[in-house]
Design a binder for these strands. Sequence first.
DNA 1: AGTGAAACGACCGTAGA
DNA 2: TCTACGGTCGTTTCACT
Lengths: 156, 156
Amino acid sequence: MPRDHKPSGPLDDVSKAIIEQLQQDGRRSYAAIGKVVGLSEAAVRQRVQRLTESGAMQIVAVTDPVEMGFARQAMVGVRVVGSIDPVADELAAIPEVDYVVVTAGSYDILAEVVCESDSQLLELVNEKLRTIDGVVATEIFVYLRLQKQTYSWGVR
Amino acid sequence: MPRDHKPSGPLDDVSKAIIEQLQQDGRRSYAAIGKVVGLSEAAVRQRVQRLTESGAMQIVAVTDPVEMGFARQAMVGVRVVGSIDPVADELAAIPEVDYVVVTAGSYDILAEVVCESDSQLLELVNEKLRTIDGVVATEIFVYLRLQKQTYSWGVR
DNA sequence: AGTGAAACGACCGTAGA
DNA sequence: TCTACGGTCGTTTCACT
């Protein structure tokens, strides 16, 4: 699922203020946001539409994995021989993998996985990750505690 | 910012269906969701309220760091001597750190950082992370490409 | 890009099963 | 925990700047 990325230059302060409001509550009304940022409802709505269509922002529900029955998360460091891209593609196609990033460092790829149990995690890594062509090593960092997860950059 | 976590047992299929709708569009109307899941508007509203108050779900704007002027992201593996908790707390308090997880493995903590430039990243790691009491080693995984980031578990 | 106004639809509180 | 309903407020469309 690649993000669309229409050009859309850097954001002005008003759009940043709108985003800040929606980071606190994605359902806050355009009218209420307009009062804070000093714009009419319609203007706020237009800017939100442009921001979402350009891919700069999206308004979504994010869930707590534990409450959803996924009690075990882990980050997997992956070392690859040969081309990295096809490996990254295959990883991204796995439903239990929710985050894939190509990195510079002692791993070529970091992949976050969400599982229901330790046994499912082990099976996933052994049978779906380590069997991908080009993967030569993996290291599992089991999550003991998620300490911070924010969707607001720079602010608060 | 610790999550509140009222007890609230495992979710039934209706609540999962509601969440699925809101993962696609966090602003979808309660009435429209009700038609899909077979519930009245008010019932959907009550369930969404309970889900958000229990911390199982939140509806927020998530942004593209590049569009927001944060062109450089990295994952930092942190090795700690002594108690891990105070280090995790200090890391979580840093604004540029958006994700902190305590892990089992060759790092004790993984922290994701969001910066405007390479120089800011370097300064952050050297002056704010490595100076924390108990941190004995860090390893930086600079993000070359974010390949996948989904907020929907299990589905699609 | 922005405003203002009127019609429409969504949301909220309350009552009742 | 759900439905029903009425009042209030938010959203949408459109003509205008």
